[in-house]
Nucleic acid binder design. Structure first.
Lengths: 339, 339
DNA sequence: TTGTATGCGTTATCAA
DNA sequence: TTGATAACGCATACAA
């Protein structure tokens, strides 16, 4: 019985060996009433001995449900889709629902292929994960299964979308710094070609405003999502406004670059300058010196929520519109309060 | 026709609307001979109009093949499993085969659940991705489908395993440094609890030996897979052997720490000291200052190869044993040759 | 060229 | 308590 050489056992095999009909065997194994205990035990026993696994295809064909969902992503890094997938598995219960993961690699043709393949496999629902916060083209509303858009909302208001509240997340970051006693707070933003960049900038400004503070340096610095930009911007910042005592960075990569230059220039962190990032990407935050405080987007929770929404929609309870999830601060060494 | 509200169209629907029998409709859509052109066109037309997607469940039930594979991982980061999955999708052709991704989270109970679920879904094969190079327990040879173990080999010689040649990869790294004219080469290794650590150390020593060199500092430094360890080890190294002119690090994280301390102590990279990492994890290598040369494990290729092996095995052509893939150097700014 | 009938593996209904 | 049978959606062998 080497791998692949043996046909999978069917209910018929079990029934025959147990000396009953398939109907009885089915009832016995599914715990349905109306089967003698002794018979049930015999059937169960045989099933176990043959390592019988009921054919989910046949079941699904009959039930009209497969217990599978498609997760459509375009994020090669897996930075977003994997935590989200964990959340999905979690919420559904790994045993009951399996996830098809498909990567469209940013190509809409390939995406359509995947959608077709998933639909023909009769997934119960689709989760579409984007890697940018700008709205993405809807898959349309003619699909035979519900769809939840995650991270990137759909551009159609009748779809269900689940997104991160970047504005509030950035406000949280600023509030965290303000609570720590910081007065001269600067913001190094990411790529201005991203909506997330502007949302975070907006959130930062609003929170500063609310705290009666204004931006150190008078303006926000826009650049890219790289450490190199973090380094360059920090140098500029220190030249323009040497008295800066806190920096909110638009991403953890930027923050890493920022930390490096601050250290190079002899600033103590967090005593002289506090630094906070965004994303809470552990390989970056935990390895930083000192460890980097960051805004966590709670992607797993996002995945769990998506699974919930999908589950409800499968049961015909759609909740169209965009739902926002809030972020949370994960505090580490780069922002110990002054006091 | 909102999401989820409409039943999927079946071949029967198409046949009825086209005014033919299901058999004729089937033949027409599958390009089988024996159907009048005019009829075929009518059927195809109707199918298109109804957005008909043949039910893969029914097809599979009949064919005994599902065109799906299960990818079993235990690597939450996705550092390994995602590139491997890309390779798999690639090799199979995204349209023909879909991948169930399951994360066991290092728990063997959960793993068994996933295996059961996948088998009951009648996947055509299983790919088991580990995150360490030590052999892992075999799923056994009684399974009705072929299994390929990737990155972590199975502990049973009759299984098919696909692994990285860490020994040769480390040798490559050393050769790269030697070719660049380096004479006093040190190695900062990772966590001694990992077999990969010792394999890489062995490969490094062999290559040094072959080049007639010996380890700068006389010994290998073992620690952990962190930047902090990279920093600490580099400090020790520079104290013990200030003349070191190249450092091979057991991982990119270690290398990042190493680079940082070298810069802190005023060493020019790569002029004074060349540094090479292992993993080629882009978020780390490309953002480093200077950008980090690293050993790439070609995980996508590993995935493609796994898909191939699986595909062959599904067609009853098993190739048991452990196959090794070689690594390759990706050169960046941290190792420009001296000359 | 077209249609009818059968089977894939399962569950549910109903008759025995 | 058990078993025969009809679905589920499709492809195919065979009859018309």
């Amino acid at each position: 019985m080497a791998n692949g050489s043996s046909r999978a056992t069917t209910l018929t095999d079990v029934a025959r060996l147990a000396g009953v009909s398939v109907a009885t065997a089915s009832k016995a194994l599914n715990g349905r009433a109306g089967v003698r205990t002794e018979t049930r035990e015999r059937v169960v026993d045989v099933a176990k001995r043959l390592a019988f696994q009921p054919n989910a295809l046949a079941k699904s064909l009959l039930a009209g449900r497969t217990g599978t969902v498609g997760l459509l992503t375009s994020d090669m890094e897996g930075r977003f889709s994997l935590p989200i997938m964990m959340g999905v598995e979690d919420a559904f219960g790994a045993a009951r629902t399996s996830v098809f993961l498909c990567d469209a690699r940013g190509d809409s043709i390939r995406e359509q292929h995947h959608v077709d393949a998933l639909l023909s496999r009769r997934v119960d629902g689709l989760i579409v994960v984007g890697s940018r916060t700008e709205p993405r083209p809807s898959l349309g509303r003619g699909l035979p299964v519900p769809v939840v858009y995650v991270y990137s909302p759909s551009d159609h208001p009748d779809d269900m979308s689940l997104v991160i509240d970047n504005v509030a997340g950035a406000s949280l970051a600023i509030q965290h710094l303000v609570t720590g006693g910081r007065k001269r707070i600067a913001h190094i933003a990411g790529d201005p070609g991203y909506q997330a960049t502007h949302d975070r900038a907006r959130g930062a400004e609003a929170a500063l405003d609310a705290a009666g503070l204004s931006l150190a340096c008078g303006r926000i610095h826009y650049g890219s999502w790289t450490e190199a930009w973090g380094r360059g911007a920090t140098r500029m910042l220190l030249a323009d406004e040497p008295a800066v005592d806190a920096i909110f960075c638009g991403s953890d990569q930027i923050a890493r670059g920022c930390l490096e230059v601050l250290r190079d220039q002899g600033r103590e962190i967090p005593d002289d300058v506090a630094v906070i990032g965004f994303d809470n990407w552990e390989v970056l935050t935990v390895n930083a010196r000192p460890e980097l405080t960051s805004v966590d987007m709670r992607l797993e929770e996002l995945g769990r929520r998506a699974a919930q929404r999908l589950y409800e929609a499968i049961d015909e309870r759609m909740t169209p519109g965009v739902e926002m999830l809030h972020c949370q601060i994960v505090q580490r060494g780069s922002t110990i309060p002054l006091n």
